[in-house]
Amino acid sequence: MYAFEFEKPTTIADAVKALGREDAQALGGGQTLIPSLKQRLAAPSVLVSLSGIKEMQGVCTGDDGSLCIGGATTHATVAKEAAAKYPALAALAGGIGDPAVRNKGTIGGSLANNDPSACYPAAVLASGATIVTNARKIAADDFFEGLFATALEPGEIITEVRFPVPEKANYQKFDQPASRFALTGVFVAKYAGGARVAVTGASEEGVFRWSEAEAALSGNFSADAVKGLSLSADGMIGDLHGTPAYRAHLAKVLTTRAVAAS
């Protein structure tokens, strides 16, 4: 690691100020950032820890009935505190990494990082969630911009994520055998207005919505509805752990399973 200063503000305002310094970077749970600092892939001058900011912690219900999660809330907390209101989301959080990772890693960090194999982006996109930052609100459909890229501006922090709670939902993750991230993961959510299906881990463009499956499921939310569909392997990731064709296939299998399990 290169040397840097460490700051731990207690309010969003102070954090935003601290992040205004040159080459400052936010630190969520550090579960992604610290390993990359060790590899000297980043050289921040200041790390601004968000873990001391109370107003960014915890799970609550918004005025419109949505589930609101503070941007610095750990996966473990979401797994526990969202379980009653949005079980599929809680289960997703409870399936990220391992217990020690879940005790530190945060939803804001996961979304800001937008790893193509991460779990949360699938839930956010399939739920049509809203990402709230210190500066604005961003719709899920506008937030993810490809591998490790998001709509966030430098220094902008995710302070909260608001999830409309679906009638039914489920996340199916097929583990990459080494990292245990999603080799492919599918989040299916059924709302009064239709179904949304988001696929992570599969595409070279990052998390995406599978519109054919959404159309089919919006008419008939059952595993049968997906049967005749297939995803093209074009643009899917091919690596040590799976070919593009395998990932395309998995996306369909997992969609079917997610619908059956929701």
Binding site: Q31, P35, N103
Partner: peptide
């Protein structure tokens, strides 16, 4: 390890298991 995966470094911080290789002392 240097990728936060092996767990040889697990300790409890305020009662919770964490990977001490993936947390700053200052934190």
């Amino acid at each position: 390890c240097d990728t936060s995966q092996c767990g040889a470094c697990v300790v409890h911080v305020d009662g919770k298991a964490v990977k001490s290789c993936t947390m700053f002392a200052a934190d």
